[in-house]
Design a protein around this nucleic acid. Sequence first.
DNA 1: CCCGCTGCTGCAATCGACTGCACAATCCGC
DNA 2: GCGGATTGTGCAGTCGATTGCAGCAGCGGG
Lengths: 338, 338
Amino acid sequence: MQTPTLRDVADAAGVHPATASRALNPATRGLVNAETARRVIKVAESLGYRPNPIARGLKTAKSGTVGLVIPDLTNPLFPPIVRGIEDVLEPAGYSGLIVNTDNDPHRERQQIESLRSRQVEGLIVATALLDHPLLGQLRREGVLMVMVNRRPESVDVPSITPDDATGIELAVRHLVELGHRRIAHLAGPLNTSTGLVRARAFRSAVRDLGLEDDPALVAHCDYWSEDAGAAALRALLDSGTEFTAVVAGNDLIALGCYDVFAERDIDCPRDVSVVGFNDMPFLDKLRPPLTTVSVPHQQIGGEAARLLLDAIADPTRPSRSVLLPLTLVVRGSTAPPR
Amino acid sequence: MQTPTLRDVADAAGVHPATASRALNPATRGLVNAETARRVIKVAESLGYRPNPIARGLKTAKSGTVGLVIPDLTNPLFPPIVRGIEDVLEPAGYSGLIVNTDNDPHRERQQIESLRSRQVEGLIVATALLDHPLLGQLRREGVLMVMVNRRPESVDVPSITPDDATGIELAVRHLVELGHRRIAHLAGPLNTSTGLVRARAFRSAVRDLGLEDDPALVAHCDYWSEDAGAAALRALLDSGTEFTAVVAGNDLIALGCYDVFAERDIDCPRDVSVVGFNDMPFLDKLRPPLTTVSVPHQQIGGEAARLLLDAIADPTRPSRSVLLPLTLVVRGSTAPPR
DNA sequence: CCCGCTGCTGCAATCGACTGCACAATCCGC
DNA sequence: GCGGATTGTGCAGTCGATTGCAGCAGCGGG
């Protein structure tokens, strides 16, 4: 006998499996004599009994798993989020099934399909595609889900997002306080909600702080990548527009700036200041260490998991959304303009 | 009716559920009339039938999941490994359940216990503890597993490990070719197999290349961390031992060196050269960019998953182990000595 | 002294898919 | 045209845990 079953426990305790089941389940324990329950529990322990979640899941139609849909675990953004999720899921007796979509809508469909056939009880979605028809469909089919890092525009889905707008404002304000007046923005892809939100926030922050809102000062990146960031900065430089500071759409784009600085012999922060976004690991090891907006990724993951567990516990509960506050981490890449 | 069951398909196709089951399962399809099979399959498709893996698992005692035991997903070493694993698991119809142990043996036990109760079919273990009694116990209990990044000493378990010894030799040889003669080693914790193997490999590489094997040149770090690396380098520096280059046990330890360089105004690579190990992301963004030994993490993960799947398919097959070749990535942190 | 209630426990069905066995239909050779 | 081999299909039990319902004992009240 590999691992003892409920029946083994019941036999050893001299009761019916049904009684053993009730004794072992805290929710139904009240139905059984306290003395009997104690005995059953004791026997279960001594036998090293572990309920088989597969069998349990068959009857209860619950799998104890949730799906985590992310673009790519290799992107340093996601591990802390996943970790935060797992840390909340685990004590609740749940676990997460991770799939990587590589931002390929087709793959995404497939992966979600595969998760559903694995009977996940809900989905935590961190992919960044905007206005996805799949989203509405899943909603209609009653699939529970929580979005991370993006707030769906049309559909009513609970979400956990960093307060991007305030984060950008933090960055701009910091630069203004240092004395910068011509601040550029290297925006992320505008077909992603974060890219869009941050770009908008940038322009309104600039206006709010009494600076000129010059459209020539914002350049767009096609991807959230170093290369795209470098390309955008080069274009901006070549356009002849004057600026003394850059707010990058995220840290990778900021890293692209570093490449251009090296390439064109620009001294950061003496010639140009840069602020990133996300606070990826090891940014403090760069020369100069990157000033950036810090996002509490692990906390975001934790909140997302909590929201999903709530939804599982009571699917009728109205969907709640959370906006998490951000902080600015000032390091060496920002200084007063010359 | 939420999702159609096998019975629904069978009814719609006018056959018995048993027949439908056989028709749908490629392994047993031969038992049923080709025409009937075709019809059943067609009906299944049109109904959008998805076999319920929970029910299937109950009968077949297979869950389609494997457990991934890692210390901490947040450590940049692991995401690529996990990604490599998932990429192999997924097409095979398996998926991975990740648990983080934080290198806490107690937590590790618990987590593995929890994975087992979830009926995982095997374990991929990437935790670095040496000589773990748990290991032998699991073996005896017939739990299939594969180790990543470490080769168990006593027990016969398949493993995938980078060829650390050759990697270290690559690093030392590179430094020697640059003209270094006094090369130090900041070894990782010696109670981890990688720490031990690399430290040994360092000394034998030094000897093989005709350098003096001075014990004063190797310092030990208590952890694989920046702080530990910095502390070890400080101790070495304070001891007055002369050296012009450092081979760090891994990249984090090398990063610790950077901190000390900044602190003591040491110019890398002019005063001291440094080589890391692992090639974490973004090392090329450091000043100076870190020369390091590159480990094919994703490939390691993939191989590990393949090994485990093999073992699942045929548990009697003798356990195989793989040593993956490494390469040296020369960047800016190494130069000829002054 | 009997009825009815409460508190426990057991019985048996159920979840959905798989599978050994039996049986029916078909086909072949002699 | 008959016996035996060969397919193809159905029946029913199984995996392990859960749960509605029934039954039983004990107890108090009328």
